[in-house]
Simulated assay, not measured.
Amino acid sequence: MPGTPRPPRTPHEEILTERLRDAGYAVGEVERATGGAVAVAGLATLQDGTRLFAKTLLGPEQDVFTVESAGLAALRALGGATTPDVLCASPRLLVLERMGPRPDDARFWEALGHMIAALHTSTTGDRFGWHHDGWLGRLRQDNTWDSDGHVFFAQRRILRWLDEPLVDAEFDRDDRRALERLCASLPDLVPAQRPCLTHGDLWQENVVATGDGAPVLVDPAVSYTWPEVDLSMLWCAPRVPQSERLFAVYAEVAGLQDGWRERMPLLHLRELLSTIAHGDGGWGAGEAVRKVIAPFRRGGGRGPATAPAARD
């Protein structure tokens, strides 16, 4: 109603407002955004009416936002993906041009399929990794270069998580040995694929839209790795039925090797382990991991397994 007073700002809105002003933005108000697990984020309206997206971290200063900004730039410059303009990136603050919500119709998912296929097919390389480490959520992503994709995925994307305190507490010795057996069997489970530039955290909440409804990628954790790793995020995380069009378009443009659906839960293990490391939040990630690794207990079989996904 006209004249209704605005509710008092929350402490998080106050912090974001303060940091925007410290960076030189003439902020009128900030509306906190929901859904993020790492940063305090919000839509900021400046005094001239301009609307921006901004986020900040509450803990110690780190290079999370400068790494994220570099990842957005790489996706755009190297792979032709649409990403938001970065207006400010510092250890305390990231400011992006404002984007809109995802429309979730078949046309949108078709366009996203073309974008991801173009990203993957135009950036193939000879090594797995990236020229510096990154972040997956609040934890470091080890991007040390390796010429062997199976070694890279085993060491940098699965076994890397086992020493995180919450992961160590979740799994017993038999679980850990099953994960190790799975990693040793990766050459039999995942066909050789050339590395390409991947978004790295490509679940549907990291896809937004321009004002005219075209897909935009945000919150990357980039590296050169198997293209199917990106697809596993879109396949295994909760998704809308219309997203089936993405996989059909991707198969037409980039191609998909036989058995790709069966590999999706295996390649999604990294995300499940990250979910546990950050605090499961009730998603059931531990049980999902145990379902995937069940064939590898006590030196068991080598066949791929299916499992539901979790998400932090």
Rank of each mutant, 00 (worst) to 15 (best):
V95S: 11
C88R: 11
P187S: 04
P7F: 09
Q193S: 07
V95W: 08
A294D: 13
G79N: 14
E252M: 05
A73W: 04
A111M: 10
E13W: 02
A192V: 13
A118Q: 11
P308L: 05
G79L: 08
G100W: 06
E18K: 06
H12E: 14
E252T: 14
D142S: 12
G303R: 13
H120D: 09
F53Y: 15
G36R: 05
L52K: 10
T82I: 12
V216Y: 08
L94Q: 06
R51F: 03
T306V: 10
L57C: 09
G149Q: 13
R290L: 06
R194Y: 00
L189N: 05
P215S: 04
A26L: 11
T275R: 01
V86A: 09
L246C: 01
G284W: 10
A307W: 06
G282V: 11
L93W: 04
Q242D: 13
T10C: 03
L189E: 03
W109Y: 15
S69A: 15
L94W: 09
H132K: 11
T144M: 10
G300I: 13
V30C: 07
Q62C: 11
P308K: 04
V30F: 05
P308H: 05
D172K: 14
D48N: 15
A118C: 00
G286E: 03
T123S: 07
D146A: 15
E61T: 15
H131C: 08
D258H: 06
D142L: 10
V249E: 03
L159G: 07
P265R: 09
I293V: 15
N206T: 11
A73N: 12
G149F: 10
L20F: 03
P101G: 01
A44D: 14
D105V: 08
G303I: 02
E170Q: 15
P5R: 08
K55I: 10
S69N: 09
I276C: 06
L256F: 11
A111C: 00
E252G: 03
M264I: 03
R32S: 07
V30E: 07
P308I: 03
H132V: 14
R302Y: 06
G28L: 10
V222E: 02
D126K: 08
R270I: 00
A23Q: 01
L93Y: 04
L58G: 13
A310W: 07
W226N: 00
P295H: 07
G286Q: 04
A39T: 15
E164Y: 14
L266K: 03
Q155L: 02
R156E: 04
A285S: 14
P220L: 03
R181M: 04
T50A: 15
G149C: 11
A23D: 01
I276R: 07
L78F: 11
G299A: 08
D258N: 02
V216N: 09
R302V: 15
V240C: 01
L72Y: 12
A154N: 07
E244D: 12
A118W: 00
L273G: 02
D312V: 10
R302N: 13
E110F: 00
L87N: 06
P215E: 07
L217W: 04
G3L: 03
L159T: 06
P11N: 02
E29V: 05
P195A: 09
S90G: 09
E68Y: 11
G35C: 07
W283S: 12
A117H: 10
A33W: 06
E262N: 02
L75V: 14
V289I: 12
D133H: 15
R76G: 10
S274Y: 00
Y224Q: 12
W203E: 10
P165H: 12
V86P: 04
A288E: 01
P7V: 05
Q242N: 11
